[in-house]
């Protein structure tokens, strides 16, 4: 198959790479570029652990072809750090000991970030909905939901 050269911004850095038309984005990011925070948990869009941000929206990278991100802006967990330091949302997750095995964390943090951009002071239901695409088997979600709510300024959830 003919390879095609694509260019995109990855965590604020311009990248150019040759991709096959059938190459998946998750595969390209992990195996060819070496960005390992997006994980493969199901390879069919069910679990959300491969979540990345494309042009401001969270997307399951296992369902996207690499060729589709030509000209886009991509962010992975590696790109949400503040000059090598964790950001305030990450700090909240750290202080509250919310994650256990940590495998879902990269995707979950990106979904929580998007949710807080959309609803800076979310209700509990908004947080639950915002995180519903990211499966976690360890935590029972509650500590994650509570930490996002606290980050949003209202312990227990803001009112509409």
């Amino acid at each position: 198959m003919m390879k095609k050269s694509i260019s995109f911004q990855l965590n604020k850095e311009m990248r150019t790479i040759d991709v096959s038309p059938n190459e998946g984005l998750l595969e390209m990011l992990r195996d060819r570029i070496g960005v390992k925070s997006p994980k493969c948990g199901c390879d069919r869009g069910d679990c959300g652990t491969c979540t990345v941000v494309i042009d401001g929206k969270t997307v399951r990278s296992c369902l996207v072809l690499a060729i589709e991100v030509d000209g886009s802006e991509l962010t992975t967990l590696e790109g949400v750090m503040n000059q090598g330091q964790i950001n305030p949302l990450q700090q909240m997750f750290l202080d509250k000991n919310v994650f256990q095995c940590g495998f879902c964390a990269p995707g979950m943090i990106l979904s929580a970030t998007e949710l807080l951009e959309k609803h800076p002071h979310p209700t509990r239901e908004q947080v639950q909905e915002g995180l519903a695409g990211n499966l976690c088997r360890c935590t029972g979600y509650t500590p994650i939901i509570d930490a996002v709510l606290e980050h949003g300024g209202c312990k227990g959830g803001c009112r509409e």
Binding site: S37, T76, L77, I86, N97, F99
Partner: peptide
Amino acid sequence: AVRVDGKAKISG
């Protein structure tokens, strides 16, 4: 105590 593996897990 904050998890000793916490930072590794929330930073990827």
